[in-house]
Amino acid sequence: MSVHHYPPHSLLADYARAGVGIVITAVPLIASGSFGVVAMIILAVMMLFLVYGLRTLLRQFTQIDVSEIGIRSIGPVARAITWDEVRKVSLRYYSTRRDRQKGWLQLSVKGPKGSIALDSQLDDFPTVLETIFREVSERGISPDQTTLENLKLYEDNRGKAA
């Protein structure tokens, strides 16, 4: 059994993004002092950053427990999926840069009553990844082509970095 959490420095970056987003949307909203169509759009964008900030806050108080029984998130939004219940596992890569470098991975484990999504910011993410894919492959669940490619490239990259 291993327990993982999001390290403070990665959460700080997310808090900064949420904060900057809220400020740069709130300033014109307050300065304009009206609630026209444009202001409504800005308000919607501000809500997006607010939700992002709340998600980061939830992450701060969430721990991920990976054991031989299954995976569970411990915290304000608790969820547990045993390995036998896993229906799908996917590994996706996102990057906001045009050359698609310096992005991050998102691992999603889907169970019957919901899913648990983890970002590569999680501490000891490679171990979590390895455990999850070992457990699901033992149970005959085959991930999609993109997930397999990402897994292979991630391991290759780590191998090169080492």
């Binding site: 310096k102 993410f125 490679p126 990259n157």
Partner: peptide, 20 residues
């Protein structure tokens, strides 16, 4: 277009420093 690309092709690029 970026959103569609992210949905269509969420693959690691060679040399990408995944796992920041």
């Amino acid at each position: 277009s970026d959103l569609l690309l992210a949905v269509l092709d969420p693959r690691i690029r060679l040399g990408a420093e995944a796992g920041r």
